[in-house]
Design a protein around this nucleic acid. Sequence first.
DNA 1: GTTGACATATGACAGTGTGTCATATAAAAT
DNA 2: ATTTTATATGACACACTGTCATATGTCAAC
Lengths: 205, 205
Amino acid sequence: MPKMTFFNLPDHKRKKLIDAAEKEFARVALFEASIANIVKTAGIPRGSFYQYFQDKEDLYFYLLDKKLDESKRYFVSILDHHNGDIFEAMVDMYHKFLVMMPDEEEHNFIKNALLYATNKVENSFTSIFDSTYDNNHYYKVIESINREKLKVKEDEDLLSILQVMSAVAFHNIIVKLSNKLSDDEATEQFKVQMELLKHGVYQET
Amino acid sequence: MPKMTFFNLPDHKRKKLIDAAEKEFARVALFEASIANIVKTAGIPRGSFYQYFQDKEDLYFYLLDKKLDESKRYFVSILDHHNGDIFEAMVDMYHKFLVMMPDEEEHNFIKNALLYATNKVENSFTSIFDSTYDNNHYYKVIESINREKLKVKEDEDLLSILQVMSAVAFHNIIVKLSNKLSDDEATEQFKVQMELLKHGVYQET
DNA sequence: GTTGACATATGACAGTGTGTCATATAAAAT
DNA sequence: ATTTTATATGACACACTGTCATATGTCAAC
């Protein structure tokens, strides 16, 4: 987390710094991003940066988590919209995530995050379904899920399902961003994989 | 790929360099690893390094792919051992991968690779099931799979299954390596998720 | 309105790393 | 023996990081 000094900053100064950082993290992945670049763009002295943040990662995950918080809230609303059908919600979310990013800088930021995913970045993304990150949000999701059509009834089993889904979604988004799949192809492929998970791949005897 | 100069090197010199590199990549993740360290340990001049490799990544992915090639071959043998049952093979492989790493340096190398996974690293891992990386190996796998118990019969459907499985496996290994799951807990969790995929999560009406 | 205590700002600096290049050396070809 | 080609070497220019001594601002208390 950024230090208090950062939050005490006058709005325009804080915004300038955030804009500069977003620009840099949209340009290249975290490990390639340079503080030197950010402070130059923001027009602040180098020393000030360390007054506000522990280091590059501190700033980075602050920004990333801020962006993903929006997605989290959005997912709950989508889930409600689909009457708790978690598969429909997931496919919808996946599609929206890929298609609904008109801001190129935002798109590149996310792309760089995903293509150079550290464990921490992956956690930030898949935390949509992880109680350790945001217990409050987690229960909202769990409670919004309609279990009627599902085989499992226990929270624990539900969690396993969510984990499988988010692992597959995460992987698919990376494939989509790195390869030459169109939005439609990617969505189609994800749907197919969700169907597999829905109905299973074994022939029931 | 390393340059020819590297492969022309006398064995002992090449080995010394590889040993030094493996040590460095076991110490820290790719982005933190330093060429300066590697050449110091190997006792070669800095200039020579660039005679052999394009850069750090060149050396890194050469080593990683070499390691994963063993795993690929091993997977085919496991699949045969389980008479083509892809779920049994996958669970077995997952367990072996976690448990059968007695060499601490090797373990740390893989751990660093996974916890700081770039798109390229993830590709290297999941390429077990990707025809674009090693067509020959891919067909060996595809042909070894027993489709009797599976709903799907087409290669294309099979590929979707494999992709889902490898995405889930990849994700689980990362969770296992970063968190405090024991080998047994991790294996159990993976089994549960494989069962979900086998039989599906929807109640068939 | 002066003082002191505390918060913030600043940029020079030491340390570390990268990739290149001119030069030296060895090996092979003619 | 001489030219050509391959390899070796380490100094160098450049880039970046994190720190620290010093400067500047803020604000409550007297």
